[in-house]
Design a binder for these strands. Structure first.
Lengths: 240, 240
DNA sequence: TGGTATTTGTCCGTATGTATC
DNA sequence: GGATACATACGGACAAATACC
């Protein structure tokens, strides 16, 4: 993927940080030094550093230098500010995963569905309910709505694997922007039917609105997580 | 605050989006046009646009243009990827706020505290427990640990107002990086004693590790939220 | 279908300002 | 005060994707 010069530099610095070539709390070489090493201008180095700052790897200080503040990730963490599918999450954490489609229907948005999805009345949609298993443990129920004009020819079989892989490979559609909102809600009958709640009387509800590169919102998904099995993670830089 | 040119442009564009001068889904003027309007180079405009993309206001597409994808915020939302204090949160949502300090002690980190805080054994710390009220409703218990060598001369009175205002104004210390982790846990006796849980048997636990501009982690705080009162919000751009 | 203009993406080189040591 | 380091900004070049005729 790293086609551009600044992405090459980004990847190289990131590797060096993750491999502890540059250690936690250590200052990395100055921008001018790096520019000479990489054979580019200071601007290009700065671009790479900016990306690493945004992701919590580095911290810059005016007049002083650039410090490593990266520490190892925990497993089983959902990263906020990153887009990761359930399949990718499972693979990253070396877990078995399986998706059971318990509802698959085609609907047309009425006012009730508009209230849920923010899709205009009349929009043709797929409506799915899917139970997600990690190591045979049911941890999430997804309630998905997809626009049929964008996510075309969806089948139950695709929904059991990865809808996003299908979209990218077959339809040449990409998720570009995701807006997510998280609340905790009391459990519903459906939650209790499908999930292993381990005594909790609530679920973590993550509602996502997903846009493609034409700025069209083509998906609204509500993911209801069992409380015990997830961690959300976030890193922030305060700007002046 | 906007001292720099790109921050001026950032603020101006942000206002125009929020005031619907540029409407949802509309393309804004081209970078070259904006550069002429603002009397600067294209690079400076691009810098401002990049910030707005990162915050979910705009979406760019190569060869086409820049589209507005901002929609209004809901109230009572905690924005991930932003640093906001409890006091600022209350004021933004036009709510009364009050903080009650139920524990204030000075401790030295032993191995147990190191396990909780990741602070080295022997570090001198303040340990606080604070109950936070919104409109006289107890919604959060904070368990704070602060390094005494950095957050000096802390008092109960300061802790009842805003520790961060004190740090910035009196100590010239700033929060620069925050790493936060969120999980849901069963309630403890302390939660049940102080919080109004409305039937929930769990709380949302946000654990924060805060760094100053010297890269020193000077605070570890665990905030235990009542589930009903909070929404966490997040926006993401997927990069190529 | 093809050519041209427009628009964003990447990168360069330079200059100046400001914070730190 | 001088050297070093990051921050901002300018102006220009070319590439790549898109739109238009």
């Amino acid at each position: 993927m790293p086609r551009t010069k600044f992405m090459d530099i980004y990847e190289d610095l990131k590797d060096k940080i993750e491999q502890n070539v540059f250690e936690y709390q250590q200052m990395i070489p100055s921008e001018n030094t790096l520019a000479k090493e990489y054979g580019c201008t200071r601007n290009t180095v700065r671009r790479a550093i900016a990306e690493l700052v945004a992701r919590g790897y580095l911290q810059t200080k005016h007049g002083k230098g650039v410090r490593v503040i990266y520490q190892d990730f925990k497993q089983n963490e959902y990263m906020f500010g990153e887009t990761e599918t359930f399949k990718e999450f499972a693979q990253r954490n070396h877990k078995q995963h399986r998706t059971e489609v318990v509802l698959f229907e085609e609907v047309t948005a009425d006012e009730e569905i508009q209230g849920i999805t923010s899709m205009p009345v009349g929009t043709e949609l797929y409506h799915l309910q899917r139970v997600r298993y990690l190591d045979e443990n049911p941890v999430i129920i997804d309630h998905n709505y997809f626009r049929r004009d964008i996510v075309q020819f969806l089948t139950k079989e695709i929904a059991e694997d990865s809808i996003y892989e299908y979209m990218e490979k077959e339809l040449n559609q990409r998720m570009v922007t995701a807006k997510r909102q998280m609340v905790v809600e009391k459990t519903t009958d459906l939650d209790e039917k499908y999930l292993n709640l381990e005594g909790y009387n609530c679920v973590v509800v993550v509602t996502s609105y997903i846009y493609n590169e034409d700025g069209v919102m083509f998906e609204r998904t509500q993911s209801r997580h069992t409380p015990g099995n997830f961690v959300f993670f976030d890193q922030t830089q305060q700007r002046k």
